[in-house]
Write a protein that binds this DNA or RNA. Structure first.
Lengths: 337, 337
DNA sequence: TTCCCCCGTCGAAGCGCTTCGACGTCACGC
DNA sequence: GCGTGACGTCGAAGCGCTTCGACGGGGGAA
């Protein structure tokens, strides 16, 4: 293994000079720097991560805690993880993958052993048991999602409430007066996943504001459940013409079910969704949707963390404005005379 | 921060004794060990990962390289990643997440800086540019998937060839004489992804062996492409009664398309698939399938790596036998008189 | 009883890097 | 012309842990 002393000897300088040339923490003459860089290349030098971490008390590793639970859409998680890794690399950091399963103990472990410098936590619950720990930890963290009491924490997410509102407003502007929300599986609400609830809030608020009749229907992530919900909607709200879907796996089955029940999208029924663009585009009828900007959230989370590591203050809350893309699943309400 | 010397003082022993008590590399009397463990708990001691890595030249971190490409089924990757993390934790290791994008340079970096002790590489291509590097690296690695020349490497995967055979044999036993394989998107074959090709090999070999008429059809991952393939199959092989699908996103759309073309599954057409059980179970018609055992592959990959790290020899190739689960999509061929 | 060896523990020497203080040199201002 | 910084570099002191060699003591073999 080639070490910093080898480089130093080869370049005719002291090890500390090599270190400073690498870190830029002290001025080094252009000429010396060139010589050092040449030696590094020639010898193929790579600083030892452990030694560096020990001496500098910085590991240049971020922890990313991913959820495993039922009812969350896996591709979104993956896309998010990839964007975190990519963003982290831009800042010369790596990413350690932790599962939710490890829980608080896992967070404490990687933080206390100085394995990581900072943490990103996904799938935050309204009353997440990890919150006190994250507040107490000496390492900065960023949460994806908003808990009930976000004070003292840094949180970022799509503004799901605004997303819910946006979907309803879109339908209202198209003339729809009776709308329904097909939401996440019941267990997601039961455990208090913030984003699911916020969609409901936004949906309901916008419907009330606009004087629309509305209802909310949690739905299991199966085609059969989708079918049941479709039947129920028809039975209970025969005047229904607008549906908002916030449940990825059910989007396509639901549209199919409506079709089989004699409701054509968008002729008889307009559908909007909150889901990844990729999904919205690949349904039989491309769906007007608010995108889940996982890539942007991931990148922004890393930026926030880097600022915090650098000692800069960052806002406690970052809400990304929803953007709705018009596709083929929405149309003005057909007025029945 | 509480360090090993603090624990040592508190327990009335020397730091080295604490270290040995922790690692078990030298015998420590039961009584002393108890005292040390009590001190550790009381003081909340956690060994500093960097210091440990520096002194022991073991970071206790594994690198996991995940693919990002088109045509691979994301939930499988995620499930695999989670199983690697879980298995690694059982061996007191953590997992560093790398993206394919980082390429060879990324592998070299984490290996040469001693950030990781070993590597797991997913989505190996037949002529993967990373192979020479992996052979040359001083750290052990395990590949998920088999390249063209696996000598000197440790590889593990589902036996996709056997899986292809199994699907055909099942159809043959049910009396089907004309079969087709709907495979991965063309680009997957173009770039030489081994597992896709092996399915084709197995499929073709078994069909030939059984004297079945067969054809192979790569297929884009979109409902429209599925529909086109279905139409093409009907046109070109009117006697077709058995289909093997190795393309997750297309499984359901394909069955739908057949339905719309007047072919009922399994009455007119038997379908088997190679895909995650979770998907096979959630199609309109639950599909008889060979599962992709991502969880098992992940866990086994970690075990292999641990053995290699421990100096034990491991087999170069580990092929997991395919297992077919009978569901509703297969039936004996209806003999037309 | 004596010798030897093994058990349990200690002390010290690093692992490879960063960082702090120090020092010489040069340019600039007064 | 001399003080005063700033610049560029060096040496040494760790960072917290593991590990090697050593050593005292006790038990078994001879």
């Amino acid at each position: 293994m080639v070490k910093i002393t080898d480089v130093a000897r080869h370049a005719g300088v002291s090890p500390s000079t090599v270190s400073y040339a690498l870190s830029g923490k002290r001025p080094i003459s252009e000429e010396t720097r060139q010589r050092i860089e040449a030696s590094i290349r020639e010898l193929g030098y790579r600083p030892h991560a452990g030694a560096r971490a020990l001496a500098s008390s910085r590991s240049n590793v971020l922890a990313l805690v991913v959820p495993l639970r039922a009812g969350i859409h896996v591709p979104v998680v993956m896309q998010f993880a990839v964007s975190v890794v990519t963003a982290a690399r831009r800042h010369d950091h790596d990413v350690l993958l932790l599962t939710q399963e490890e829980g608080e103990e896992g967070l404490r472990r990687v933080a206390d052993t100085a394995l990581v410098d900072a943490l990103i936590v996904m799938d935050v619950q309204l009353h997440d048991p990890r919150l006190p720990l994250l507040r107490a930890l000496d390492r900065p963290s960023v949460l994806i999602g908003f808990p009930a009491g976000p004070a003292g924490l840094t949180c970022i997410d799509l503004d799901f409430k605004a997303a819910g509102e946006l979907c309803v407003e879109r339908l209202a502007r198209l003339g729809h007066r009776v709308v329904a929300l097909v939401g996440s599986p019941p267990e997601v609400y039961v455990r208090g996943t913030a984003f699911a609830q916020r969609v409901v809030e936004g949906f309901t608020a916008a419907a009330d504001r606009g004087g629309l009749a509305s209802s909310v229907h949690p739905c299991e992530a199966s085609p059969a459940a989708a079918r049941r919900v479709a039947e129920q909607l028809l039975r209970e709200q025969p005047a229904l013409t607008g549906v908002v879907v916030h449940n990825e796996p059910v989007l396509e089955p639901l549209i199919d079910a409506f079709g089989q029940l004699g409701l054509r999208v968008p002729v008889d029924l307009s559908v909007t969704a909150i889901c990844p663009d990729e999904l919205a585009e690949n349904v039989r009828v491309p769906v007007t949707s608010v995108a889940i900007p996982s890539t942007e959230v991931g990148a922004r989370a890393v930026e926030l963390l880097m600022k915090k590591l650098g000692g800069t203050d960052v806002p406690e809350a970052t809400l990304l404005a929803p953007r709705l893309t018009e596709r083929a699943s929405t149309a003005p309400r057909t007025l029945t005379p």
